[in-house]
Structures are given as structure tokens and as C-alpha cells.
Measured scan of single mutants.
Amino acid sequence: KKKREHFRQLLDETSAITLTSTWKEVKKIIKEDPRCIKFSSSDRKKQREFEEYIRD
């Protein structure tokens, strides 16, 4: 659960993310961040979390 919170925090702090951002764009920006790396090695899982984040 904590990894998820850190991942969401990373998304919060990434000012380039807007409601129209695509995962492909965002992934390029955040892929080097340790919170992104630690969250999951599964790209699909990160994408799902990102899409949920955008909906919230």
C-alpha cells in the first residue's frame, strides 16, 4: 500500500501531468524516479494506477 501512496505522490508532484496526459507521455517523465521503479516492475500495473489516478 505504501508503494502505491508513493507512486501517487510522484504523480501529484509531476506538474507535466494533466487530465489529458497519456501514460506513454507520463512514463517517459517518471520512469527514472525511484518511486516509479519501486512501485512495480509491471508496466501494466503502473498504467492502471495512473489511469485510476487521472479518474480520481
Score class of each variant (00 low, 15 high):
1 K>E: 11
1 K>S: 11
2 K>N: 13
2 K>E: 14
2 K>M: 09
2 K>W: 00
2 K>Y: 08
3 K>C: 02
4 R>T: 07
4 R>W: 14
4 R>E: 11
4 R>I: 02
4 R>H: 14
4 R>F: 07
6 H>C: 12
6 H>M: 15
6 H>D: 15
6 H>Y: 12
6 H>K: 12
7 F>Q: 06
7 F>H: 01
7 F>E: 07
7 F>N: 05
7 F>W: 00
7 F>A: 02
7 F>C: 02
7 F>P: 00
8 R>F: 02
8 R>W: 12
8 R>A: 07
9 Q>M: 04
9 Q>T: 09
9 Q>K: 10
9 Q>P: 02
9 Q>S: 08
10 L>M: 09
10 L>K: 06
10 L>R: 00
10 L>I: 01
10 L>P: 05
10 L>S: 05
11 L>K: 01
11 L>D: 09
11 L>I: 00
11 L>T: 03
11 L>Q: 04
11 L>S: 03
12 D>V: 05
12 D>N: 08
12 D>K: 01
12 D>L: 04
12 D>C: 05
13 E>D: 06
13 E>I: 01
13 E>Q: 04
13 E>K: 03
13 E>N: 03
14 T>R: 00
14 T>Y: 04
14 T>V: 12
14 T>A: 07
15 S>W: 04
15 S>I: 10
15 S>N: 08
15 S>T: 13
15 S>E: 13
16 A>W: 09
16 A>H: 15
16 A>F: 08
16 A>D: 14
16 A>V: 07
16 A>L: 08
17 I>K: 05
17 I>R: 00
17 I>Y: 01
17 I>H: 04
17 I>W: 01
17 I>D: 01
18 T>E: 13
18 T>A: 04
18 T>S: 13
19 L>V: 13
19 L>W: 08
19 L>C: 12
19 L>Q: 13
19 L>K: 07
19 L>A: 14
19 L>D: 12
20 T>L: 09
20 T>Q: 07
20 T>M: 11
20 T>V: 04
20 T>P: 08
21 S>Y: 03
21 S>F: 01
21 S>N: 10
21 S>E: 02
22 T>G: 03
22 T>D: 12
22 T>N: 13
23 W>F: 06
23 W>L: 00
24 K>F: 08
24 K>M: 13
24 K>H: 14
24 K>G: 12
24 K>Y: 12
24 K>P: 12
24 K>D: 11
25 E>L: 00
25 E>A: 03
25 E>D: 11
25 E>N: 00
26 V>Y: 06
26 V>Q: 04
26 V>K: 01
26 V>R: 01
27 K>N: 01
28 K>Y: 03
28 K>T: 08
28 K>V: 08
28 K>W: 07
28 K>R: 02
28 K>E: 15
29 I>M: 13
29 I>V: 12
29 I>Y: 14
29 I>G: 05
29 I>F: 07
29 I>Q: 09
29 I>A: 07
29 I>W: 12
30 I>H: 04
30 I>A: 01
30 I>K: 03
30 I>T: 03
31 K>G: 15
31 K>I: 08
31 K>S: 14
31 K>Q: 13
31 K>D: 12
32 E>A: 09
32 E>L: 08
32 E>R: 07
32 E>K: 04
33 D>C: 05
33 D>Q: 05
33 D>P: 01
33 D>L: 15
33 D>G: 03
33 D>A: 13
34 P>W: 06
34 P>S: 07
34 P>T: 13
34 P>V: 06
34 P>A: 09
35 R>M: 05
35 R>P: 06
35 R>Q: 00
35 R>G: 03
36 C>W: 02
36 C>T: 04
36 C>N: 05
36 C>I: 06
36 C>K: 00
37 I>D: 11
37 I>G: 02
37 I>T: 09
38 K>I: 07
38 K>M: 14
38 K>R: 13
38 K>H: 11
39 F>A: 05
39 F>C: 05
39 F>I: 04
39 F>V: 03
39 F>E: 07
39 F>N: 06
39 F>G: 02
40 S>D: 11
40 S>G: 09
40 S>H: 09
40 S>M: 01
41 S>D: 13
41 S>H: 14
41 S>M: 11
41 S>G: 09
42 S>L: 04
43 D>A: 01
43 D>Q: 08
44 R>S: 14
44 R>F: 13
44 R>H: 12
44 R>C: 12
45 K>L: 13
45 K>W: 10
45 K>Q: 11
45 K>E: 15
45 K>N: 11
45 K>I: 14
46 K>L: 14
46 K>R: 14
46 K>Y: 06
46 K>E: 06
46 K>Q: 14
46 K>C: 15
46 K>T: 05
47 Q>N: 11
47 Q>T: 02
47 Q>V: 03
47 Q>L: 05
47 Q>D: 11
48 R>H: 14
48 R>M: 14
48 R>Q: 14
48 R>W: 10
48 R>K: 14
48 R>T: 13
48 R>Y: 12
48 R>S: 13
48 R>N: 13
49 E>Q: 03
49 E>A: 14
49 E>P: 01
50 F>N: 11
50 F>G: 10
50 F>R: 02
50 F>A: 08
50 F>I: 01
50 F>C: 07
51 E>N: 08
51 E>K: 04
52 E>T: 12
52 E>L: 15
52 E>C: 14
52 E>K: 14
53 Y>E: 07
53 Y>H: 10
53 Y>Q: 04
53 Y>L: 00
54 I>K: 14
54 I>C: 08
54 I>W: 02
54 I>H: 10
55 R>C: 07
55 R>F: 13
55 R>D: 09
55 R>L: 09
56 D>C: 08
56 D>N: 10
56 D>L: 10
